[in-house]
Design a protein around this nucleic acid. Structure first.
Lengths: 333, 333
DNA sequence: CTGTTAGCGCATTCAT
DNA sequence: ATGAATGCGCTAACAG
């Protein structure tokens, strides 16, 4: 492969002129410039990204650690990050932590060692002992994506789950429901906690009787059976799932309990399936704007790269409630 | 950041000894070795991946270009590639071509310029004029994933679509169907072509009347209306979709034509939805082993890296037919 | 407007 | 078993 020296010799100019032509970093007389361009053409020269990165201490790349590549919502986030990265001339280096704290820490180190200019952590467990120190000590700025930890000093992107859940509850109440059930999931996860908060916000705001509401926080093997029992006892008329895996659980319980969604049982879920329109009935979902979240994370990162010591920002994207039949056709006694 | 020189000075050894200790590239007396290790500990030294890569002309990274990040099947492939890459000590650089030939070419150049050690192209359009030359001329080996182009001189990974489709047809025939319909999609795509071939294989093998079979190759706006018309005319009893987008189209047509899957109409699709069990009825799918495909691509790549001039290999993974209610409960008149 | 020069941090060859 | 010296290809002072 031809290098800058080859080009310089051929164009009969100095090394630095070639560099400046390639990077447009200083004025070069049109004639000289053209000679260089011709030499580049003739030699098939391509800039050595590695040498350049080493010299400038910048790789023009960003790292993304996701906790579950393979999950559709993540695919969309990755997609959004990649999309925005390319637009800023950045390349994306991807790592997967598989929801494992130790692997997350290794992934972070790998990417940092690769000297990515910035790092995005999507749905970080942030639980490995050394990780937090690594992150705060990192020269490359860090952005937290999806899970918001208010106490941490990073730029962050999340959704306004609390508000969305409250709006969903209000909608169900307006449709005539007075006894709701929420499959709330693991309350150590910030997002799921926010959704539970939003649930009670809605209950309060709608002046429902709190004693008549049902909340399931566990997800152990019994949960499904428990739920099936409640379904048989008919202690609620509307069922909400706080995430897609929880929705799967809930729907299986509904089928197991020989109940049908949309008849006398309303159903809604967060984060959305891939083809909610193809279910019968079509399922009301509160979708995560995953692509936009990815794009936003990159925006925060680029901003941060430009002004290192601005205050950390947390951006919350609004979630759209996509109303469909599963909460609409309700006929209450 | 401390560099090797700092470590060398502190351990009172030479630069090269430090290098050899770090990389284990030559024998070092245990005592010396320990001094170096201590100095590394004390300085918090981390190897500079960039300088190392430049010096060795190897980045220990691989590039992956996908044509639609965001699509669940791809998420799984990416996942598989990442998983296998990490196991081989390789980092993954990801780019998306968005099914656009020009962007695909740009992505390939970007990754090659980053000096990835190898490149995997998932569902390549391979249609940009210059791309093929770039690929064959690339110093980094290239693996084609998902779409197999028999005439190209690369290692390739695909599925045995033709065989899977034939098996699916046989199954439907055994369930009593004699008039089938296939939404076959764009026949310029190798995979979709193979599936159509498999369809006719099955028809022939089952001795069905070819004139009674229906194949829709287009996917323009009319296709859905066309399909709805056929559904009303009841010219087939089993409907197969060759891919997930085609399945969406087909199911919309079924609903538009006020027909119900599973009653008198069997339905099956390739590549699978995410939650086929939650549909009513549960949908028979021929799933792509996407994760394994990703893993296999990395294996081929690593093999290739070790023996540059072995003959190109094409690996075809078998597809599993996941039989569910949509093809089972059929009661024919 | 252009050229000369000095490293960036490391792996590696050649000596000892 | 260890060290000294070289250069990978580039950018950015500095000098003219």
């Amino acid at each position: 492969m031809a290098n800058m020296n080859d080009v310089a010799r051929r164009a009969e100019v100095s090394l630095s002129t070639v560099s400046h032509v390639v990077n447009g970093t200083r004025n070069v007389e049109p004639k000289t410039r053209q000679r260089v361009l011709d030499a580049i053409q003739a030699t098939g020269y391509r800039q050595d990204v590695l040498a350049r990165a080493m010299r400038r201490s910048r790789t023009d790349s960003i790292g993304l650690v996701v906790s579950d590549a393979g999950e559709p919502a993540f695919a969309e986030m990755v997609h959004g990050v990649e999309h925005a990265a390319v637009q800023h001339g950045l390349t994306l280096v991807l790592a997967n932590s598989a929801e494992d704290a130790e692997r997350e820490e290794r992934a972070v180190h790998t990417l940092l060692d690769r000297r990515v200019d910035g790092l995005i952590l999507a749905r970080s467990a942030a639980t490995a002992p050394g990780l937090l120190g690594t992150l705060t000590g990192s020269k490359a700025p860090v952005i937290l994506l999806d899970r918001v930890f208010p106490e941490l000093p990073f730029d962050q992107v999340g959704v306004d789950s609390r508000d969305a859940m409250q709006r969903l509850v209000m909608h169900l109440v307006n449709a005539g429901h007075k006894r709701l059930a929420l499959v709330a999931g693991d309350q150590r996860v910030p997002t799921l906690r926010e959704r539970l908060d939003g649930f009670w916000d809605g209950v309060r705001r709608a002046r429902l009787d709190p004693a008549e509401q049902t909340v399931l926080e566990k997800t152990d093997p019994d949960t499904r059976a428990q739920l099936e029992k409640m379904l048989e006892e008919d202690i609620f008329s509307a069922l909400i799932a706080s995430s897609t895996p929880l929705a799967t659980l809930a729907l299986e319980a509904v089928q197991g309990g020989r109940r049908v969604v949309g008849g006398d049982l309303a159903f809604a879920t967060f984060d959305g399936f891939n083809h909610p329109d193809l279910f019968e009935p079509r399922i009301t979902t509160v979708r995560q704007p995953a692509f936009d979240m990815g794009v936003t994370a990159v925006r925060l990162l680029v901003d941060r790269l430009e002004s290192r010591d601005a205050n950390p920002r947390t951006v919350r994207l609004q979630q759209q409630i996509e109303l469909r039949d599963s909460t609409e056709r309700i006929q209450l006694a």
